[in-house]
């Protein structure tokens, strides 16, 4: 990524700018794009929202929620992080690339449709799975949860992909064409 701002020689502009990837991992953006408050908020909110999204995913069978809404909520958390941390923060090669996430989500969805065949059930047929887990005790799961997980993964991947293309991609275009971001 081109980072003309990083070597900004103007000391008055740069003196209080954070120089390390302090709060969020990923590349450090130029100080002009950074906002301390937003970064702190994101830092605080991001994991919470992710946990909430998993809750929504699991609760979907019993109340408002489900894989789709959960995925969107998680996606919005990434949006927040993108706005705060910039495009370099996400998907720059270290993390799993968004198309892989999308593909995995799709694969989980389709496999969950086909998997019942392995157990002598019909395509997309669901069943209750009971399992005794060490801490939680007996847990019952409807197998349609797998589809929900697929949906969740896919939506997260889609949002990441949008951030990569519409977000970082356009931002980079703007920089390359010498325009200034309006927002």
């Amino acid at each position: 990524m081109a980072e003309p701002d990083r070597a900004d020689p103007d000391p008055e502009q740069a003196w209080d700018g954070p120089r390390q990837p302090w709060l969020l991992n990923g590349d450090c953006r130029g100080p002009r794009h950074r906002s301390l408050l937003l970064e702190i908020t994101t830092r605080a909110v991001f994991p919470t929202v992710l946990v909430f999204s998993v809750y929504l995913l699991l609760v979907g069978h019993y109340g408002p929620g489900g894989g789709f809404s959960a995925g969107l909520v998680a996606g919005l958390a990434f949006v927040l992080r993108h706005i705060a941390g910039g495009g370099g923060d996400l998907g720059s090669g270290r993390a799993v690339r968004p198309p892989t996430v999308i593909g995995a989500g799709m694969a989980v969805g389709v496999v969950s449709a086909l998997l019942p065949l392995a157990f002598g059930l019909r395509v997309l047929e669901s069943a209750k799975l009971g399992a005794a887990l060490p801490v939680l005790g007996a847990v019952e799961v409807q197998t349609s949860l797998f589809l929900e997980v697929g949906v969740y993964l896919l939506i997260v991947g889609v949002v990441l992909e949008l951030l990569r293309s519409l977000g970082s991609g356009i931002e980079r275009d703007l920089e390359e064409s010498g325009e200034r971001a309006r927002q």
């Binding site: 969805g109 389709v110 449709a113 949906v151 896919l154 992909e161 990569r164 293309s165 519409l166």
Partner: peptide, 18 residues
């Protein structure tokens, strides 16, 4: 099945956008 198709649409749209 609708849902599988629906995520298929999202899948395609995301690939197309990028």
């Amino acid at each position: 099945l609708d849902t599988v198709g629906e995520i298929g649409v999202l899948f395609i749209a995301a690939a197309g956008v990028s």
